[in-house]
Amino acid sequence: MDKSVLRFSHCNKDIFCFFVPEECPECGISFSGRRLEEAPVSIPNPFSNGHKSPCSFLVAPTDENKLSRDFDGGSDLHTGISTSKGVVFNYTKTGVCRDHQGWERCLSIPLVQPDMYNLIDQWDQYLDKFSTAQMWDTVWKSFNEETHNCYNYTLMFINCVSATQGKRALSKDEFTKSFVLPRIKRASKYSTLCREISQNHFYIVDSPLKESGETDGDGKT
């Protein structure tokens, strides 16, 4: 379970930590009876439990990289689609798997709005029917790392559902650039923060907002 990352400002520095210390790690001044330049802000955790993220597109490290659980741009990633009950369908070398566990820490992109009741009701049926199609039968067509993989499977399903809603299909580049890359970058930055804090207790950087004289209260990094 990831700890919550906090950010506060002092000495024209942005200081990231798991808890606010009694004194500033930069200048040593005690915070007792003093006000911080900015109140501590919680940095949103980008990771989700895929089994508690219904009707979503999920991204997680491959089995070979699950020990590192990293989104550093160098690790191979695996994708899946969750049912309305949190079972994760994903395409592998052995065909379509239906995972009830193993996706507890992943990136989640919701694909259905909460008020789309008709689609939610049919979601599992769509996914099951799509997954039993001949093209996902390894006897008929083998898994290929480049041309017939987990990403092809998930994106093709998304486009099939979009077609039933009268929406146009998205290319792999479009979907990746608009939805996947921003979340991977956020996750990579968050993982770096956690790693630095775990090793050094704090992660301290110059505050660009203080230098420019601007203010920002949204807590984004």
Rank of each mutant, 00 (worst) to 15 (best):
E38P: 01
S68H: 13
S188D: 14
K185R: 15
F31W: 06
K141Y: 08
R7K: 13
K93S: 12
Y190G: 05
D115L: 07
M156E: 14
C27V: 05
D76W: 09
S207Y: 04
P61F: 06
V139H: 13
T164G: 02
T132K: 12
Q113R: 14
F157H: 04
G50S: 11
T79V: 11
T221C: 15
F179S: 09
C17N: 06
T215V: 15
V96R: 05
V180C: 15
I184K: 08
R34L: 10
F89V: 00
K167P: 01
L119V: 12
D76T: 14
D128H: 08
L170K: 00
K141D: 02
F16E: 04
E174K: 07
G217E: 10
S53K: 03
P114T: 09
I29Q: 11
N200Q: 11
E23V: 00
G50R: 01
T192R: 14
P46M: 10
T215D: 15
D72V: 05
P61M: 10
C160R: 05
I158W: 05
F143W: 15
V180Q: 08
V112Y: 04
E211Y: 08
L119Y: 00
N200W: 00
E145K: 03
S207I: 06
K13T: 03
P44T: 09
V87H: 01
K66F: 11
E23M: 04
V20F: 04
C11H: 03
R168Y: 03
W103Y: 12
G86F: 04
L181F: 07
N12D: 09
D216G: 13
L170F: 10
H100Y: 11
L119E: 06
V180S: 08
P25R: 00
G86T: 02
K85R: 15
S9K: 02
S56M: 04
T132A: 06
S131Q: 04
Q122D: 11
G219P: 07
D218R: 14
G28Q: 06
L111I: 05
M1T: 11
I204R: 02
T215M: 12
G86E: 03
Q101T: 13
E211V: 10
Q125S: 13
A60T: 15
R183L: 15
Q101A: 13
N12H: 00
E145R: 07
D128L: 06
R7Y: 01
T215H: 13
P208D: 13
L193I: 08
K177L: 10
